[in-house]
């Protein structure tokens, strides 16, 4: 089932729970997961299922309560924030639902940022080339506020690929976009991913988007399961019909989910 025998990401007995007043709230039940280099994997699940919590731990943004997380054989669970920053700078790329561009920097400067943090010498040239690839060659000096949502996400995609990350985490990358733009963005991500040979971990509740990944896992109330091939193909079919009409509703539930998770972490 794994495309490559070398695992870029390996999770063992991972749990996450938080203390809310005198109660312990379990966000992630003990789970195991391995992701092979070059593989694309989708984490699907409804709002509040724990998929974003999982992503933040896998990417080294947060620490697990127990268990082990290895990214490129580096034990993230043992690392402090500084060490995890270093791992992110060297190996990780991000695409967020909210784009998360720095408003005071231009499109090009936003794209250059990870390359600069990874001490790459040709950040500008790479940035220009990538922005050209995502179709924004004429928008290099525009500020995020001067770009549409789709354009901002394209800048974010260019930024995600500039430092040639080993693994790319995408959190609901089309969640804030209309379906047509979302489709375009999805194509871009998968095209670039194939071209660069990057490992992709995609968190989404959109079954159609998830279906484009080589592998899918599902989160439900903090429990991770890997569905069968049949289940996956069924999910993709039904979502073709429903995805357009549920789009707006999903964004809302996603937002409320984000709010609901706010007190859980930290």
């Amino acid at each position: 089932m794994h495309v490559n025998s070398e695992n870029i990401l390996s999770v063992k007995d991972l749990t996450k729970s938080v203390q809310v007043e005198d109660k312990t709230l379990v966000l992630l039940q003990p789970l195991n997961l391995t992701v092979a280099a070059g593989e694309s994997i989708a984490v699907v699940g409804s709002s509040g299922s724990g998929k974003t919590t999982l992503l933040s731990i896998l990417a080294g943004l947060d620490l697990p309560s127990s268990g082990q997380v290895y990214l490129k054989n580096k034990p993230l669970h043992q690392f402090n924030e500084e060490q995890r920053s270093q791992v992110r700078a060297q190996h990780v790329g991000f695409i967020f639902q909210q784009f998360l561009l720095i408003n005071s920097l231009t499109a090009l400067e936003n794209v250059m940022l990870p390359a600069e943090l990874a001490n790459l010498t040709d950040a500008r040239a790479r940035g220009e080339a990538l922005l050209e690839q995502v179709g924004l060659a004429d928008r290099l000096d525009h500020y995020p506020s001067q770009l549409s949502g789709g354009e901002q996400q394209r800048v974010a995609i260019a930024r995600a690929f500039i430092a040639k990350p080993d693994i790319l985490f995408a959190d609901e990358p089309t969640g804030n976009l209309d379906s047509k733009t979302g489709q375009h963005i999805t194509d871009l991500i998968f095209d670039l991913n194939a071209k660069e040979g990057t490992t992709l971990v995609l968190v989404t509740h959109d079954a159609k988007l998830a279906a484009r990944c080589q592998r899918q896992v599902e989160m439900d109330s903090g429990v991770l399961t890997e569905p069968t091939v049949e289940q996956v193909s069924n999910n993709a079919k039904t979502s073709n019909v429903e995805s357009t009409k549920t789009q707006h509703h999903d964004v809302e539930t996603q937002n409320s989910a984000a709010q609901a998770t706010t007190p859980q972490v930290g």
Binding site: A59, L61, E81, E82, S85, Q86, V87, R88, A89, Q90, V92, F94, L100, L101, I102, N103, S104, L113, P114, L117, A118, R159
Partner: peptide, 14 residues
């Protein structure tokens, strides 16, 4: 947000 993005992209505290 700028600082958080910087950090998420791998910038150290220093």
């Amino acid at each position: 947000s700028t600082v958080s993005i910087f950090k998420a992209l791998g910038a150290s505290i220093s």
